Simulated scan of single mutants.
Amino acid sequence: MGIVELLAASPAALVAVCALFGLMVGSFLNVVILRLPRMLENAWQSEARVVLEMPAEQGERLSLIRPASRCPHCGTPIAPWRNIPVLSWLLLRGRAACCGKPVSMQYPLVEAGAGLLAAACAWRFGFGWELAAALVLVFTLLAAAVIDWNTQLLPDNLTLPLLWLGLLLNLNGFFAPLSQAVIGAAAGYLVLWSVFVLFKLVTGKEGMGYGDFKLLAVLGAWFGWPALPMLLLMASGAGAVVGIGMRVSGQLGAGHAMPFGPFIAAAGVLWLLLPIPPALVMP
C-alpha cells in the first residue's frame, strides 16, 4: 500500500501526518509573521524615497527565504538541528543557544497551533482536496491573525490571494454555492466598511482598518453570505470579552486600540472546523 492509499484509508495516519506537516509549516509561518511586515515597510520606504527623489538605501535584502533563519537578538544563523518546531524551544528552555537570551513564546505557540489546526482539518475533512483547501485557509488565517495582533496590519499579500482562492474553489461549490460566495465577498467588505464610515462620522476617529473589511470579505468568499451574521457575532463577542479583560487587567490602556482581525480569523477557523447547527445559519 502506497502512502497516498494509506492516508486515504487510515484517518489516524492522516491526522498524524497532517499534525507533523503543520508543525513544519508553523516554523515557516513564524518567518512570515516576523519578516512580512518588515518587507512591506522596506518597500514603502523605497517607494517614498523614489517619490522624494532621494537615493536608495543600501543594505541586506530581506525576503521570506533569505537570509537563513537567525537569532533575533544577536543575528547568529540558527543551525537546522536547533530549528525543530516546538522541540528545540523546549530543549533550550526558551533561550537562544548562541547568546542565551529569551526567545518569545510566540514561536512554539505558532508552531503548535499550526500542528493542531492541521490535525483538526484532517479529522474534519478526511483525505481529499477539501483538506488541502482547509489547510491553506487555516495556515494563512493564523499568520494574518498574529501579524495583526503584533502590528495592527493585515497585509494584502495574505488577504487578497485568499479571497480569490475562496471564489475559485466555490466555482465547484467546495464550501458554498458560487452565488453565495460572490455576494458574501461583497457583503463581508461592505458591512465592516459601513460600520467604519458611521463610526468615523459620529466620533471623527477610525475604529478599524481596511484590512478587517478584506478579511471578512475572505470569509464571505469561502463560506457564503449566510455565514456572515454568525461569523460577526462570534468575532465581536470574543473581541468584546478579551478587550474588557485586557482593560480590567491593565494590559490595554485607555485610548489604545485592539486589533479586530485575530477575532475575525478565529471565527473563520471555528466555522470551518465545527459543525454549525442549521438554525444558526441564515437561509
Rank of each mutant, 00 (worst) to 15 (best):
C74I: 01
C74R: 01
C74V: 02
C74Y: 05
G75H: 11
G75P: 02
G75E: 03
G75S: 10
G75W: 00
G75Q: 07
T76F: 03
T76H: 14
P77N: 03
P77G: 06
P77E: 04
I78C: 04
I78F: 06
A79P: 00
A79K: 14
P80R: 01
P80A: 01
R82M: 09
R82V: 00
R82A: 11
R82F: 12
R82L: 14
R82C: 06
R82P: 00
N83E: 12
N83M: 12
N83D: 14
N83R: 08
I84Q: 08
I84S: 07
I84D: 12
I84M: 07
I84H: 09
I84E: 09
P85A: 09
P85L: 11
P85T: 08
P85E: 10
P85N: 10
P85H: 08
P85S: 07
V86K: 12
V86C: 13
V86E: 11
L87S: 06
L87N: 05
L87E: 04
L87W: 11
L87H: 07
L87Y: 07
L87F: 14
L87D: 04
S88W: 13
S88R: 12
S88D: 12
S88I: 11
S88G: 13
W89P: 10
W89M: 08
W89S: 08
W89G: 04
W89D: 08
W89V: 06
L90I: 15
L90K: 04
L91R: 13
L91N: 02
L91C: 13
L91T: 06
L92R: 05
R93N: 06
G94E: 11
G94T: 10
G94N: 12
G94L: 12
G94H: 10
G94Q: 10
G94R: 10
R95H: 15
R95F: 09
R95Y: 08
R95M: 10
A96Y: 10
A96I: 03
A96S: 15
A96W: 09
A97Y: 15
A97W: 15
A97S: 15
A97P: 15
C98T: 08
C98S: 13
C98H: 08
C98N: 06
C99Q: 10
C99W: 12
C99G: 09
G100R: 05
G100M: 07
K101H: 11
K101F: 01
K101Q: 15
K101E: 14
P102H: 04
P102W: 06
P102T: 01
P102G: 05
V103L: 15
V103P: 03
V103R: 01
S104M: 06
S104V: 06
M105K: 00
M105E: 00
M105V: 09
Q106C: 01
Q106E: 02
Q106F: 02
Q106N: 01
Y107W: 07
Y107F: 11
Y107N: 03
P108Q: 01
L109N: 00
L109W: 01
V110I: 09
V110D: 01
